[in-house]
Design a binder for these strands. Structure first.
Lengths: 230, 230
DNA sequence: GAGGATAATGTTGTATACAAGTACACAATA
DNA sequence: TATTGTGTACTTGTATACAACATTATCCTC
């Protein structure tokens, strides 16, 4: 599985390398405990060590690798990691929705509905990359609307990981024809409807359910994917 | 105000530069909207651009600067930022305490009490640096005990900022002789007692109160400090 | 053959060099 | 005067070079 080239338009070599490595780590192509050296990666990508250093630092702050004196150790995503990421996502979104409930958010609702339309369109065309991207986008514009710089930073810290995991999981869902796509879209609709009703406890409940389900799916797909690649 | 040299033992130039710059930004010595160039900083510190780049990337992921094409723009800590950081700290600690309540934590309690003793000692010797460090340490070992990798990452993302803010605020508190030190120590004792009682709703309440008070103090000290330096 | 000194290799951290692009001043021109 | 073109200085992104240290292999000694 390759990182979509169009998403890397205008990105520096360092960012590109980070994205490629991240996807390989999340998808399990690069397995945990693998030791990455800057020279080796620089050779693989045909670049110098400078952008590689930048990429490794990025992956380190995301918690995907551990920087040691000699080499970077790949940590990867364990089942526990995925649970934990959803803990954080749950917090972020409930916090943000709580905030949004105190504020005008009509524009947001229409924007979210537009995104859901795009998701349906992507599903129809079996474009899992677009679907995953819109899925991410849905949650992201909600967070952006929350206007909380620090929460946004938390999100940015896990954003790329979530995107990579969504890519892997969505591809799996699409190819497996498990017919989980429609329910997934419906769940997003439910979030919007909760936002319209402006009932914060209902929002929390919907979000909780959404992440509970998604977590299980992602957990299964990402982890079984890892086994496949073994 | 200088970053304590002993804390930089064994750190790379990049980390040292990051720490020095961070403190200057948080304390307001470097004011918001200042534009930092890699060359300029490299000259100031007498190093090459390589470690400076590393430092700037660190400060960027911490949200203290914004990396643009020409130069890095200093963002600094506004009053809103401080509020937001305490939102995150409140979430982290309530989440962690909720987890700890389901688990044996006698060792943690004794460790926390030891730290409070060190805080009292530091207060007696008017050692505000040690006091600030132990204050940070108190919260940190609680978070570590929570055994939640992703939350720990959130913490690591704000840890250095919190430390810098604590340094500035604690110095102010000590020199102003505002007699706020004893109540502050007592608040930490209260957290420990809540932990001992193992009543999670009480914990939440205590933490909320703790951060509410501390937020106000830090907000005042850090921001007035900025005005002073103007 | 076993163990230890030692050389070779590989690693990171830092410095320097170069290339591509941007902003800005300044002059020439309409 | 306003505008446009140009040169210059500065910026980042990347490549390369070097130093200090860690690891590993080798060879020598026993």
């Amino acid at each position: 599985m390759q990182y979509p080239a169009s998403w890397l338009q205008g990105a520096s070599l360092g960012e590109k390398i980070a994205c490629e490595l991240r996807l390989k780590i999340v998808s399990g192509t690069i397995k945990p405990n693998t030791i990455l050296s800057e020279n080796q990666i620089a050779d693989e990508f045909g670049t110098s060590r400078s952008p590689v250093r930048e990429a490794l630092k990025t992956l380190f702050t995301e918690g995907l690798i551990r920087l040691e004196r000699m080499g970077a150790v790949v940590l990867g995503l364990t089942s526990k990691d995925i649970e934990e990421i959803y803990d954080v996502r749950f917090f972020i979104e409930t916090f943000i929705l709580e905030r949004l409930s105190k504020v005008q958010h009509e524009n947001l609702v229409t924007a979210l509905n537009q995104i859901i339309d795009k998701m349906e369109m992507a599903a129809k065309h079996h474009d899992f990359i677009e679907f995953a991207y819109q899925d991410l986008h849905f949650h992201e514009i909600m967070i952006l609307e929350g206007d909380h710089t620090r929460i946004l930073h938390l999100w940015n810290n896990i954003r790329h990981i979530v995107l990579a995991a969504l890519l892997v999981a969505t591809e799996k869902r699409f190819t497996a024809e498990t017919h989980e796509i429609k329910p997934l879209i419906d769940k997003h609709r439910l979030i919007v409807s909760a936002l319209v009703l402006n009932d914060s406890s209902y929002m929390k409940q919907v979000i909780q359910k959404h992440f509970e389900d998604t977590r299980h799916t992602v957990n299964n797909t990402v982890l079984t994917h890892k086994v496949h690649e073994k």
